[in-house]
Structures are given as C-alpha cells and as structure tokens.
Amino acid sequence: MDFGLSTAQRERCDRILQEVGAHWAGRRPAGDPEQTRADFRTAGKLGLTGLCLPAGTGGGALGALDTALALEAFGRACPDTGLAFAVAAHLLACAVPVRDFASEEVRDELLRGLASGELVASNAMTEDGAGSDIGNIAVTAEPTGDGYLLNGEKSWASNAPIANLVVTYAVTDPRAGFLGQSAFAVPADLPGITLGEPLPKMGLAGCPAGRIRFENCHVPARYLLGEEGQGATIFQHSMAWERACLFGIYLGLMDRQLADCVRWAGERKQFGQPIGRFQAVSHRIAAMDQRLEAARLLLYRACWLLDQDEDDVSAVARSKVAVSEAAVANSLDALQLHGGLGYLAGGAEEQLRDTVPSTLFSGTTEIQRELIAKQLGL
C-alpha cells in the first residue's frame, strides 16, 4: 500500500489548479449555451476533456486514478461545479465507451474532437419509465439494411441542449431483455434527432440538461458501439468510470469548502473570540474533514482497482455513496457554520444545491447499496 502521489501526479494537479483558477476563478454559472461551448473548448486546451483518451487523439492517456486526481483539482479550482460535472460526464459517460467500443473508423472520426472539446457529448440513457430500472428502456433501434432506425425519447441527458454527439441506448431485440439492448454513438446533426431546451433544475446550473427525441432517426451501422446486445455491458462499463472518477470533482469541492470554513472560523468573532475556539464549531469542522478523507480513500481505491482491471462493482458503489453523502453533509455543515451569510445566494447554499444531485445521478444511493448487497450475496 502506497498512499503517496508521484512527482508527476503532484505536478499535473498543481498545473490544473493554476490553469483552471486563471480561467474560471470567481466564475458564476452562465446558463448560456454559447458560453458553455466556449468553456468546453477552453477545457480542451487545458487537457480536461481528453484526460483518459489516447495520446494519438490529443488525449492525456491517463488511467482511472490519474483522471480522478485531475478532476479533483478541476473541482477544487473551479467554483462552477456544474461546468466541471459537464466536462466529466462528457469524458467518462460518452468518450470512454467510444474509446473502448467504437470501430477504428468511428474512433478516428470522433475521439480527436471529443478530446479537444470541439465536440460536446451527451449520455442519453434515462427515460420517463426507466431511471434506476435501466432494463425497462423503451427507445427502439430497428435494424435496417445499412443501419438502425431509432424511435423514442430520453428524458434526462446532461449536455443535451449543446450536444454534437449523443451516446445512447436502445432496444434492438425486445425478446432478449438486457441482452436485447444496444449502444450507439449518434451524431446530433442526423435527421430525426431533436435536442430539447435546458431543463430547470436544482443545482449544477453550469451543466445544461434536456430531453432528446428520436423520430425515425436513421443511424448508420458504423455508429453501433460493440456488438448488438452489448448495450447493458457497455453502459455498466461507462458507469464504472463515471461513478469512480467523476466524483473526484466533489472531493475538490469539499477541499475548497473545508478551507473556506477553517478560514471563516478563524476570522468570524462572536462573544469576543473567533468562533473556531468554540467546540461546537471546531468539532463540526473536524467531522467535515473526517468525511472528506474517508471518502477520498474509497474513491482512490475504486479507481486503483479499475486500473488493475479488477471488476469490483461494490468498491465503486461504496465510493460513490461515500463521496456523494459526504458532499451533502459537509455542505449542510458549511451553510450552518456561515449562518445567515451561508443562506445568501452563492457560496455555501450554491454548494449545497450542487451536491444534492450527486446522490441521484450515475445511479441513486439506493441502487449503489443494492449493488453492494448483491456483492455480499444478499
């Protein structure tokens, strides 16, 4: 067991902290599609949209742990957690399955644009009747002579309103259950695709999310990921990367939040002394630190296992639950520590809104605990 970071890892994280801070320090969520596209191109220049993509495509060729460390630095330096989430979802839920399952032709077509941020990708799995129950998806992909005809609607897709590429999942064989689902990397400019307007939502304002409708959308066969019937396997593969690595941005948020709370407890005075001298305050901050460090260890271990090609579903699930629940609890504590100031727009209240959805996306906390229970034989 080696808990130290290498010189290369430390230097990479320091560079990201500096460069992200230079571009987005004091950044407020824009909610402007053109601004978000420009932010993706900036993230591409900083190497963030291609962290774990092959070097030959302009990516960083990083493993899971190094990707998570880079995203942690991104999340710490960028106050717009929604933007960090948008970039991480683009990379892990979309670019990773293209990297690992697309044909060589399609990888050559798409990966360079995904790595540079010129192409923005949206992951479209969730439907009105299929959230946690991904086996119940209703979007269909009817095989034709030279491709597939997609029909149906996805209800919740991050980056959808600005997407150039949609990684989606559809039923190719209704009789085969999970083995009848297939995955596709669909260019968003194909006829028959409608990208919805941004959905109003709580938190993560810097990441637009919307519905996606397919109406007799003809998708050439080359955009099939893997083989027919591999959709469920490909989705679980991408979710392992997302659940393990994406939550690095929340470690970064908690790092920034904790430092702010320590500073505030030393500056804010009540009853003639800094509030940090009151045990009620100092112990609350100590609990924040404990949650953060415990979550960090579980996330690093989950990513390390991915790098060892260990298929440990429960390790990833434990990490996802620990980080998301720590992020919500710490944000509640940060708001309480700042009192009325924490309730004002921005700062602690914004961090709370950005952390609440972390217990929902990439599989709810309840689904993660179900995965852990199944691994235990229950």
Rank of each mutant, 00 (worst) to 15 (best):
S314T: 06
S314Q: 06
A327F: 09
V316C: 02
D333T: 12
D354G: 04
V321A: 13
Y343T: 11
A326H: 04
G340C: 12
G347E: 02
N330H: 07
E349T: 12
L352C: 10
Q308G: 07
G340E: 15
V323M: 05
L306H: 03
D309Y: 05
G340Q: 13
V316H: 07
T355M: 11
H338K: 15
Q308C: 14
A345C: 11
G340V: 14
S314W: 03
S319R: 00
D333K: 02
S314C: 08
L335A: 05
A322K: 00
A334Y: 05
L341V: 12
Q308D: 11
D309Q: 14
V323Q: 02
L332T: 06
Q351W: 14
A326F: 01
G342L: 03
L337T: 14
L305W: 05
E325A: 10
Q336G: 12
A326R: 08
Q336S: 14
T355I: 11
D309V: 07
P357Q: 03
L335T: 02
A329W: 01
R318L: 10
V323I: 05
V316G: 05
A326D: 07
Q336W: 15
A329C: 01
S331M: 09
G346Q: 13
G340M: 15
A348G: 06
G346D: 13
L344H: 06
S314D: 14
L337Q: 11
E325P: 03
A327E: 04
D309S: 13
R318E: 14
L352W: 03
L335H: 01
A315T: 00
E325M: 13
G342D: 01
D307S: 12
A329K: 07
Y343H: 10
V316M: 03
P357A: 11
L332P: 01
G346A: 08
N330A: 14
L341P: 00
A329G: 01
K320Y: 00
L335C: 02
G342S: 06
A315K: 02
K320W: 03
L305H: 06
S331T: 12
S331R: 07
L344S: 10
L352E: 09
E325G: 07
S331W: 07
H338F: 08
N330S: 12
A345Q: 13
D311H: 12
G347Q: 08
G347H: 07
R353W: 10
E350A: 15
E350G: 07
Q336C: 12
V313S: 12
A326L: 06
L305F: 05
D312N: 14
G339V: 11
